[in-house]
């Protein structure tokens, strides 16, 4: 069954969408949208390093993303704001990455495939790496969910309950690096942030609890992947960008529906008396 490239592509994209859903929610809640973007930019440097040292792409990307994520989390609040640090780190690593790639004259590198993903070329080994990454992230999320959630609401409340918000942030950061590293093959560096944020943003109006939002985001993410794959096959368009287009379309439709169809809105409650 896994011999079919379309089946492999489906499994890979669904896996990434599942892991991206809870992470994407945290990114939206913590206003870290730019963090996802910056980690993804740093991934280009990881690609360059892996090609230079002939190590697997996944390993290089993971190392660079982890390095960048941990540096930014530990430096923030020490005289620099988070977005300044991210701006410096992400573009520096992107630039170094692009320069480093230019030195690799021996091999022809299709940079496009790393920028926008090459989901139809996902092999069995890639699939194994993606599966392992996705399961690690989902396990981390399930294990630390309450702690990260409480630290997101208020770090001092977390401390008073015996939870270290810095440790929770580290768990989140590491998970983010893993997702970026496994998603690079699926949607590419430039569109990873969309996989994380768009489904979570779409799920918001229908959610009453954080868990509900993560769950709806997962369903939306998976359906965007399935229909995006199908659409790219039918219209012969690049797969990663098509998935993101479908996701964005869902976002627009859902928000319009929420505005236009009254019964989707919560009933007006008379709070007087």
């Amino acid at each position: 069954m896994l011999d079919d490239f379309l089946v492999r592509a489906t499994v890979a994209s669904v896996g990434v969408a599942l892991a991206a859903a809870p992470l994407g929610c945290f990114i939206v809640w913590r206003r870290m949208a730019y963090f996802g973007d910056a980690t993804a930019h740093a991934a280009v440097l990881g690609v360059a390093l892996s090609l230079t040292l002939s190590t697997p792409i996944f390993a290089g990307v993971l190392v660079v993303c982890l390095f960048m994520a941990i540096t930014v989390s530990s430096l923030s609040g020490r005289g620099f704001t988070m977005d300044t640090l991210l701006g410096v780190m992400s573009h520096t690593s992107l630039a170094i990455g692009l320069v480093a790639v230019s030195f690799l004259s021996g091999i022809r590198i299709d940079l496009m495939s790393y920028l926008f993903g090459d989901i139809l070329a996902v092999g069995k080994t890639d699939l194994l790496v993606i599966a392992l990454g996705v399961m690690t992230v989902l396990a981390l999320m399930a294990w630390r969910w309450s702690g990260i959630l409480l630290s997101t609401l208020n770090p001092d409340l977390a401390l008073a309950s015996g939870i270290d918000p810095k440790r929770e942030q580290l768990v989140l950061t590491v998970s983010l690096a893993i997702v970026v590293a496994v998603a690079i093959k699926v949607v590419g560096v430039l569109l990873i942030a969309a996989m994380l944020i768009v489904p979570a943003a779409t799920a918001r109006p229908f959610s009453k609890t954080p868990e509900m939002m993560a769950f709806i985001a997962a369903i939306l993410g998976v359906s965007a992947c399935l229909s995006g794959l199908r659409a790219s096959y039918v219209f012969d368009t690049p797969t990663g960008p098509t998935i993101v287009c479908v996701s964005a379309l869902l976002f627009i439709l859902v928000n319009l529906a929420h505005k236009l169809i009254p019964f989707l809105r919560p009933p007006l409650v008379d709070k007087g008396a």
Binding site: W29, R31, T209
Partner: peptide, 21 residues
């Protein structure tokens, strides 16, 4: 705490909040 800002992006009911952590 003195201030607790609940981000608009985070849906949470009182009951869920009470059940944290």
């Amino acid at each position: 705490p003195q201030k607790l800002h609940i981000d608009e992006a985070l849906p949470i009911t009182v009951k869920r909040f009470m059940n944290l952590p």
